[in-house]
Write a protein that binds this DNA or RNA. Structure first.
Length: 526
DNA sequence: ACGCTTGTTGCCATG
DNA sequence: TCATGGCAACAAGCG
């Protein structure tokens, strides 16, 4: 007989499969209250960086969750208010003895959960939290690396290699698991605890783009299985060889589902392993396993690095004197840089909420070290709003990567806003899809419409400077100037030892002398 | 200690 | 079509 009255608090981890905390909630419970806490005030506040598409995804995920729970005689409660306040009230109202949830390593979540735990302690409610959002417990990974985060993928892999394979994914709870356990539901449940509409959150569904990636666990599992059927594709997958500008996604687009936890990374990992088994297959970092490891890498570093989403006070981030040109940031954000590839990607992002990883590279490089010299933090905030898969650790980590602020340092490798897109879309079909104003340009000019003779512009019905912007900067010149600025920032960091992630030796003497370096090595063998 | 190798995904010219 | 080197030259890890 169940003696517990339990709350399972969904935050991320919007799924029933591989949800150890949910299973813990079911154990010896006579009453189980699955809740999700939503602060409607936050949804409409200016501090909220969640665009309409992602709200829609979340609400769909919650709907799907409620459906699945109903088939287990359970119901989801969507609670309106602040978590620490509302959960305390509910514990008293429902005489709760046990609270379970999935561990979350993001700083705001760590703080929030600490507050909740303190209140639960005072109330005498048992709190159980489980790791299921990442392949491993990232704090254990850090511990196994000697107490600091591994800052290269290689180092990260070598730490993981000592940790074995990730835990197997757990099954969803069944009616048998839940025997004698139900959610007490009143007739006014939907009125008070139903999944809200976009309108209730002050959003309008007319602001959303086409529904390409419906939210929820059901869709996540379908999507994963659809891809896993393509055995050769899975085994040969190499991320850098996929196209950033195909007309339909060249990768799985499971990222939004992983972000919200509609899909367990451990389930995906082991399902991939099953497909790989006995076959020749690609390897990390480029394989699909490798993609899960990248996610894990940034989660791990993000969990233990102070100020990970900022430049100042961030020990892994190079300090770079980014400029502030609001009009440049605005043009980039609003897809009017005058570089069709950049503008098409930014249009797809705003409209659909997902762009290919390499497309993110191109626009991130363009905004920061490549062309506009705008801080990566600014770009990160735009992605935070518009991406369905906006994930705090990955977003900050990748923006630092692309801006050569951390992890990646070869700042003279700059993506060309013209040449990069041409490689995989020589005809410019992707540009025509997202920038219809350029539709009639011949392939020869569509990546650089400002070079088209005026007769061509007229025939295309698009005059550059009138119907489509001129290039916001001259790429070649901007690139050269920015490389110089990056070199200066790197040199400054070296001489002051500031922004250098890991302290090596003492002072800043280092090399003055390429001369010395060129001298023959006079060391004698033995 | 210091030199060497490597680094998921650049671009361009050359062969 | 693909591989290579120059570009101007970085950080981190390893031995």
């Amino acid at each position: 007989m169940g003696k517990h009255r339990a709350i399972h608090w969904f935050r991320k981890g919007l799924r029933l499969h591989d949800n150890p905390a949910l299973l813990k909630a079911c154990e010896q419970a006579s009453e189980l209250y699955p809740i999700f806490v939503l602060d409607p005030w936050f949804a409409s506040s200016p501090q909220c960086h969640v665009g309409c598409n992602r709200w829609r995804f979340l609400l769909q995920a919650l709907q799907d969750l409620d459906q699945s729970l109903q088939s287990l005689n359970l119901r989801l409660f969507v609670i309106r208010g602040q978590p620490e306040v509302e959960i305390e009230k509910l514990c008293q109202q429902w005489s709760i003895t046990k609270l379970t949830y999935e561990a979350d390593t993001e700083p705001y979540a760590v703080q929030r959960d600490a507050k909740v735990e303190a209140r639960m302690e005072a109330l005498g409610v048992e709190v159980i939290k489980c790791v299921s959002h990442t392949l491993f417990d990232v704090n254990l990974t850090v511990k196994n690396n000697g107490g600091c985060a591994p800052l290269t993928y290689q180092k990260f892999q070598s730490v993981l290699s000592k940790m074995g394979t990730p835990a197997k994914a757990l099954l969803s709870p069944t009616l048998t698991d839940l025997e004698g356990c139900k959610t007490p539901v009143s007739s006014s449940h939907d009125q008070y605890y139903g999944v809200p509409t976009l309108e209730e959150l002050g959003k309008s569904s007319s602001d959303c783009g086409p529904l390409l990636f419906p939210g929820g666990e059901t869709e996540a599992l379908d999507r994963m299985e659809r891809h896993l059927k393509k055995i050769n594709w899975i085994c040969n997958f190499e991320k850098p060889k996929t196209s950033p500008n195909s007309l339909s996604p060249s990768t799985t687009v499971l990222s939004p589902y992983l972000k919200f936890g509609c899909l367990s990374p451990r389930l995906f990992y082991h399902r991939l392993q099953q497909v790989y088994s006995g076959k020749k297959h690609s390897q990390p970092p480029v394989s699909l396993h490798g993609q899960l490891l990248w996610r894990e890498f940034f989660y791990t570093v993000g969990a233990v690095t102070p100020n990970f989403d900022r430049m100042k006070g961030n020990p892994v981030c190079r300090q770079i004197p980014w400029g502030s040109k609001p009009e440049h940031l605005e043009a980039w954000t609003e897809a009017r840089t005058g570089y069709p590839f950049i503008d098409a990607v930014m249009t797809q992002l705003r409209l659909e909420g997902w762009i290919h990883h390499l497309a993110r590279h191109a626009v991130a490089c363009f905004l920061t070290r490549g062309d506009l010299w705008v801080s990566w933090e600014q770009g990160m905030k735009v992605f935070e709003e518009l991406l369905l898969d906006a994930d705090w650790s990955l977003n900050a980590g990748n923006w630092m990567w692309l801006s050569a602020s951390a992890f990646f340092h070869q700042y003279f490798r700059v993506y060309s806003p013209v040449a990069f897109g041409k490689k995989t879309d020589p005809n410019g079909d992707y540009l025509r899809k997202y920038l219809p104003v350029l539709k009639k340009f011949p392939a020869k000019y569509i990546f650089e419409p400002w070079l088209a003779p005026s007769s061509v512009q007229q025939a295309a019905g698009c005059i550059v400077g009138k119907d489509y912007p001129r290039p916001i900067v001259d790429h070649d010149r901007a690139r050269q100037e920015n490389i110089k600025k990056m070199a200066a920032a790197y040199a400054a960091a070296k001489s002051s030892n500031e922004g250098s992630p890991v302290k090596t030796s003492g002072g800043g003497k280092k090399k003055l002398s390429t001369e010395l370096d060129k001298q023959p090595n006079k060391k004698l063998k033995k």
